[in-house]
Amino acid sequence: MDILVCIKQVPDTKDIKLDPETNTLKREGVESIVNPFDMYAVETALMLKDEWGGTVRAVTMGPPQAEQALREVVSYGVDEVALFSDRAFAGADTWATAYTLAKGIRKLGDFDLIICGKQAVDGDTAQVGPGLAQQLDLPFITFVRRIVKIELDSRTMVVERLMDDGYDVVETSLPALLTVVKEINELRVPSLKGKMKAKKIDIPIYSAADLEVDPDSVGLTGSYTQVIEVFAPKPRGNRIILEGETEEQVEKLLNGLTKDKVLSVKID
């Protein structure tokens, strides 16, 4: 089975901060990681490869330093990687990103399966996976939590899709695109040989010209949506949690409300 995984480099959300003056993300000093949901996509691909053989490739669209994310997944066992990188790609929204990824993936060849994480933890849109499937004209299933079976002869697969109140069992033809949730598996650890390979591997970089994209469809120009403003929600006021017996709590509440002049009369 030849599988392609789409990954994104994101700031480590554990230490993300907003600049209080400009209200933009502080990027300096923030470590970059592979989007955590994408790691489950990588693991899914590697497990399928362990079972069925074939290759696992990973791609990302991003700035030159996004190659670090690709090296990371090589250390886990991904065979080959490619970086789609060009100044023209900057500022892409989910549509322009999906378009660019689709152009790149077509260049790389045919795949039995494309796997993405359910969403990226920085943008949180969950749109690129489905958008990419549309661009590639592939069936897609989102929020996959289990792969039930694969039949390579009839080129079909059955998966479970996580829903709010249970799960759906869905069959699709192959090739297809899946987005996966973290319930699908437990990540493996990288290997020493993988890490050594990751350090050395040549990462091909594809520019806008290489991918023969329509210049009006990529980056900020090609984006249907634009970010007008990023702001931090106003901090909430002080909160007090009342403790004790119900009567005690009511007493405290009344006292507080009277003291803060929300209530003007004391009720006996």
Binding site: V189, P190, L192, M196
Partner: peptide, 19 residues
């Protein structure tokens, strides 16, 4: 060396994630 750091980092990662 870079290789030795790799071994150290990897052992730490496996220990923290799996042990």
């Amino acid at each position: 060396t870079e290789e030795q750091k790799m071994i150290q980092d990897l052992a730490r990662q496996v220990a923290e994630e799996k042990v």
